[in-house]
């Protein structure tokens, strides 16, 4: 922007100063981009890498612009202040066509570059499969044919046998191809897992921060979804779409384990008796009733699902 003020031949010290400013802005921006990975939870799915890199790119570019603009503003604050009784005007510059074209075109190029990269990332992840609308209540949904998700050959069997993910006010239920029901989600590490998302009452959001993935569950629709967990561990699964009364308590865990451990868990789970899952919303609602049902109106929690394996509310999660 110095060019506007010194529209003659640029003075050497001004050029040097500008150069130093741009270089330090660049250095700071690279540093911020590197830092940005630390602002995110552990990376536990195949999506995390590309998403985090894209975010870092944006942090870098964003920092450069933010520091650049606020640097210029700070400069004017320091050096362009009017002395107390100086009633003069500044330089009567009304504009500069070249500069205006530059600051139209450069942002355009930058955002289109970002969009292009983002489309590439979405294409590689391809987590979202088809969506079918089902009318006639939730019972009909289980019969609904899963739309083709165009899986790789190796994944074909898994795609044909997805895990059902059912969101309710306010509980999670997972039904595995072998008939196991659980209220925490177990997934094998390093394989593409196929999910069928549905909700029985209102919209819910399937959100696992460690996976960097989120997808709404929409009543009346079955949505095919797939993801690849890449790191063993226990992570939070949170309802991300506001779902009424005890929305905040509608959390459970995802447990990612090596494929053998996962198979063992499935087999072992099937031997457990079905029992109601532990459910924070029901506990809170009962406490509320015990205190005389004070507070504003809410629908009562749906009965907790009957599961072979219930989530353990005390188990520590990594993120």
């Amino acid at each position: 922007m110095t060019t506007t003020a010194t529209s003659g031949s640029p003075r050497p010290w001004a050029v040097l100063l500008l150069l130093a400013a741009v270089l330090s802005d660049l250095a700071a921006s690279f540093w911020m981009a590197a830092q940005s990975h630390r602002w995110l939870p552990v990376a536990a799915s195949a999506a995390a890498g590309p998403v985090d890199d894209l975010f870092a790119l944006e942090v870098g570019i964003g920092s450069f612009i933010f520091l650049g603009c606020s640097g210029v503003m700070l400069w004017t604050l320091l050096f362009n202040r009017a002395p107390k009784y100086d009633l003069d005007n500044g330089d009567p510059i009304e504009g500069n066509l070249k500069l205006e074209i530059v600051w139209t075109v450069i942002p355009l190029v930058i955002v289109m570059l970002i969009a292009w990269k983002a489309i590439a990332v979405s294409t590689t992840l391809s987590t979202l499969g088809g969506k079918v609308r089902v009318s006639g209540g939730h019972a009909a949904m289980h019969g609904a044919e899963a739309p083709a998700a165009a899986p790789m050959a190796a994944d074909a069997t898994a795609a044909a046998n997805p895990i059902d993910v059912i969101g309710r006010q306010w509980s999670w239920e997972f039904i595995y191809p072998n008939g196991v029901h659980s209220s925490e989600l177990h997934l094998p590490e390093g394989q593409r897992s196929f999910l069928r998302l549905s909700a029985t009452d209102v919209i819910h959001g399937f959100y696992v921060p460690a996976f960097r993935l989120k997808q709404d569950l929409i009543p009346g629709s079955v949505i095919d979804y797939s993801l690849i967990p890449t790191r063993a561990g226990r992570y939070r699964l949170r309802d991300s779409m506001f779902s009424g009364g005890y929305f905040a308590s509608n959390q459970t865990d995802v447990v990612v384990e090596p494929p053998e451990a996962y198979e063992d868990w499935l087999a072992e789970a099937l031997r457990q008796p079905l029992r109601p899952a532990a459910n924070a919303a029901t506990d809170l609602y009962n406490q509320r009733l015990a205190r005389g049902d004070r507070g504003w109106a809410t629908v009562p929690p749906a009965p907790p699902p009957l599961v072979h394996v219930s989530a353990d509310p005390e188990a520590p999660h990594e993120s």
Binding site: T76, N80, D86, E100, W103, L108, V111, M112
Partner: peptide, 29 residues
Amino acid sequence: MVTTMLIAVPTGIKVFAWIGTLWGGKLRL
């Protein structure tokens, strides 16, 4: 996503114009 990103362009024009207005001015805080 693309249309949303495009909004940054006219918005950016305004921001840069304000900064251009400050540049070389006689600021009264």
